[in-house]
Simulated assay, not measured.
Amino acid sequence: MRNAKLEIEDLQTFVEVADAGGISPAARRLNLSRSIVRLELLVATRFHDQDRHLRS
């Protein structure tokens, strides 16, 4: 399994999910499986949550 650090691909996936309106449409646009898109989205949101927690 890959490191739990934020990669540029994770941010790009996050933006694509928001723009496409969901995981399935984003996966089609990115030509990735839904499970990979979910994993990258999870990494991006966990990184955001950790960053927010450290700032409080």
Rank of each mutant, 00 (worst) to 15 (best):
M1P: 06
M1H: 09
R2T: 07
R2W: 11
N3Y: 11
A4E: 12
A4S: 07
K5G: 11
K5M: 12
I8H: 13
E9W: 07
D10K: 11
D10L: 00
D10G: 05
L11T: 09
L11N: 04
L11P: 05
L11F: 13
Q12A: 04
Q12S: 15
Q12C: 06
T13F: 03
T13Q: 06
T13W: 05
F14G: 03
F14D: 00
E16Y: 09
E16R: 07
V17K: 01
A18C: 13
A18D: 05
D19Q: 10
D19M: 14
D19L: 14
A20F: 03
A20K: 06
G21L: 13
G21F: 08
G22K: 09
S24Y: 14
P25Y: 04
A26D: 02
A26V: 00
R28P: 12
N31T: 06
N31A: 13
S33Q: 05
S33N: 10
S33I: 01
R34C: 08
R34V: 03
S35V: 03
I36D: 14
I36N: 03
I36V: 15
V37L: 00
V37I: 05
R38W: 02
R38Y: 13
L39M: 13
L41D: 01
L41C: 01
L41V: 07
L42S: 11
L42I: 04
V43G: 00
A44Y: 00
T45L: 06
T45E: 10
R46K: 15
F47M: 03
H48I: 04
D49V: 06
D49R: 07
Q50F: 15
Q50Y: 09
D51N: 08
D51F: 15
D51L: 08
R55S: 02
S56G: 14
